[in-house]
Nucleic acid binder design. Structure first.
Lengths: 142, 142
DNA sequence: CTTGAACCTCTAGCAGCTAGAGGATGTATC
DNA sequence: GATACATCCTCTAGCTGCTAGAGGTTCAAG
């Protein structure tokens, strides 16, 4: 019987976060002591580890919900899990591409700054005028 | 005299977002018609473009606030603007590193999935057991 | 039996918007 | 001048994924 604090330490998840996962139905409601404190078993520890690990790989809570669901039904074909992972991979690659463009632009900005007055600062100039950009970049909401 | 809708179209910013920027003090309060509708001038259009462009480059609203402030004082040395851009560049590079590790892991997951049942799906298996990971990855909150 | 760490619930906050309700204004056309 | 209708207004609440704090209770060790 594990307390929420133990679970927290074992998985590196904040206590509040565990309760949050329960609230949104990602973690099941655990048993309680007479006094009303949560007590977990190993299955729940595994589930939380799964969630955390998936989060580290960048999956959204919705995606994780699906993955958990698939994981709970070992006889279903695993195409879906595969598709979710592929989707995630694609997203990661897209984000990387965008970041690459940003890096190029930022490097150029920083490089060209000659250390004078803000009035002729290249950094600010570039920000003022998009047309100076050599690469395409659209980061917002990434 | 530009309406908020015109500003919106010219900068690719949602009307609501412009009002939000005003609310948090990033955009100045514009003039109003007798009826109370906002009317902008070109200086304000430039300012919004600056903000948007900075957002596209991934700067936080706080960073943008600083950059705008610097931009408003052309006689100050531009070290600060430079420092902000460097900071941003560093962040972008860190995010790229993390994404690279994630991509490796995701690729491996997807690659090893043989298309059977979820019960022996490699994707789910990897998520279940962090120790199978070949690379370090810590993405959460990135 | 007392102490004190860990637990409980509840509310509100973070970034950076976005959406919708419910109503007023501005402009073009007749 | 009337009408139509796109656009504007304010206000509130929602999104993701947590995180922090107030104010109070429970558990386990000594």
């Amino acid at each position: 019987m594990l307390t929420i604090g133990t679970l927290s330490k074992k998985t590196g998840t904040k206590v509040q976060t565990i309760r949050y996962y329960e609230q949104i139905g990602l973690m099941p409601e655990p048993g309680r002591t007479e006094g009303g404190q949560r007590r977990y078993d190993n299955a729940q520890l595994d589930r939380l580890s799964f969630i955390r690990h998936s989060r580290q790989l960048g999956f959204s809570l919705d995606a994780i919900r699906e993955l958990l669901d698939l994981s709970d039904h070992p006889n279903r074909p695993c195409d879906e899990a595969d598709a979710i992972a592929r989707r995630q991979l694609k997203q990661v690659e897209q984000r990387m591409d965008r970041l690459k463009a940003l890096r190029t632009e930022l490097k150029r900005m920083v490089h060209e700054c000659s250390g004078g007055r803000t009035g002729d600062c290249k950094v600010l100039e570039v920000l003022r005028d998009h047309s100076e950009c050599l690469t395409e970049h659209e980061e917002i909401g990434a």
